[in-house]
Simulated scan of single mutants.
Amino acid sequence: MKPTIVMVPRMPEALVARLRERYTVLGPMERSTPEALPAGAADAEALLTMGSLSTGAALIEALPKLRLICCYGTGVEGVDRARAKARGIALGNAGEANAASVAEFAMGLVLATARRIPQADRFVRAGRWKGNSVERMPAVPGLAGRRLGIYGLGAIGSRIARRAEAFEMEIGYHNRSRRADMPYRYHDSLLGLADWADILVVSARASAENRHAVDAAVLEALGPRGHLVNVSRGIAVDEEALCAALEAGVIAGAGLDVYENEPQISDRLKALDNVVLTPHIAAASDSAQAAQQEVLLGNLRAFFAGEPLPSPVPL
């Protein structure tokens, strides 16, 4: 008899077909709440979800046989880890599967905001470019020699740093602790990193502890020629403070792939010309998606075989 698993979000059809070869798959669910659980969920031993969705205590308790929560992607911020630990439930994610994809997208946002690429596209489409003699866009600083501050030098952040080296940038970072294996300049506070940096990239793993870590004070420290890029989670940035900073010229611009209340995006952000907005697609490359799916399948196979998870998350 196949083990039963519950799938909260709608997942790629090819992945679901592979899951059905080994498991009885229930779902997707309309929302991640106990009352939305499909018939037969009481027999589920594994729950497939995403970090951006809530996997709260009530949902966990509504699944009496649950022994594994598996997140598609790297985020686990929506999981009530204390409740999972108390129940002896294992937690897995995609580990470093999408790190390269997210890092390259982060550099795309760095280029887009610092070099004003979307604004240049609009300038041309509006018919404003008449050659250099009538009107041209103002010059902006390049990336070479500028300071890139990385908040969170993990799997993604370290890859961003290596890519930024190719642009001849000076690199600093803030982590909970210094990384002895990395040659970059360490800052013992996020505020200090922002004060030093020209461009601040947020790649820290989202959690309750770093909610609104990038606040008004950090943005003020980044300064009027500074740019913010966020490829982590929206909760890491105080969005109201960011809107105010962009509107008032406290910082020069921003590139955002994540937001506080996805998929809703603030009308204030959408009205601004100095922010680049993308729909949470940093990991939406063929290679990253394929890798994430393999890790998810690997976590499930290992769990039901009684083996250690390939990509566990400590509780």
Rank of each mutant, 00 (worst) to 15 (best):
L219K: 11
V229L: 05
R185F: 02
D238M: 13
W129H: 14
A164G: 10
D181F: 03
G172K: 01
L256D: 07
D188G: 12
A213W: 13
R163S: 07
T113I: 14
L143Y: 03
R205A: 15
E170C: 00
Y151L: 14
V202A: 15
A161V: 03
G152F: 11
D195S: 15
D257P: 04
H187Y: 14
P141F: 13
P138L: 07
R211P: 00
N175G: 04
L191F: 09
G149Y: 06
R176T: 10
L246T: 12
I199W: 01
I199D: 04
R128D: 15
E135G: 02
Y186T: 02
Y186P: 07
R115H: 11
G145S: 06
L200R: 03
S158E: 08
E170P: 05
A236K: 06
R211T: 15
R205K: 12
R225M: 13
V134Y: 11
M169R: 06
A161I: 00
R225W: 10
E170Q: 14
A221L: 05
L246Y: 07
L222Q: 04
V229T: 07
G255T: 12
N132G: 11
P118N: 08
L193N: 05
P138C: 03
N175K: 09
E220A: 15
S158Q: 08
V214A: 11
A180T: 02
Y151G: 01
V134P: 01
R211F: 08
A126V: 01
A204L: 05
A164L: 04
A144C: 11
R178S: 01
G172H: 01
Y186I: 06
A236E: 15
R225C: 09
V124K: 12
G234P: 04
E209M: 11
V140L: 14
L242T: 13
A254Y: 07
G255R: 11
R146T: 10
S177N: 08
A206S: 14
L193E: 09
V250H: 06
Y186V: 04
I156V: 15
N175P: 00
N230I: 05
R163D: 09
S203E: 00
A217L: 10
R146N: 04
G255Y: 07
G131Y: 14
G149Q: 04
L228R: 07
L193R: 06
L200S: 00
L246W: 08
A161C: 08
S207K: 03
L242Y: 11
R225S: 15
V250N: 06
V250F: 06
E170H: 09
R128T: 00
R211E: 13
E220D: 14
I235T: 15
R205W: 06
V201S: 10
P118A: 08
A216N: 05
D121Y: 13
V214T: 08
R163I: 14
G255K: 10
A166S: 13
V237P: 03
V140I: 09
D257R: 04
I150M: 10
R146W: 07
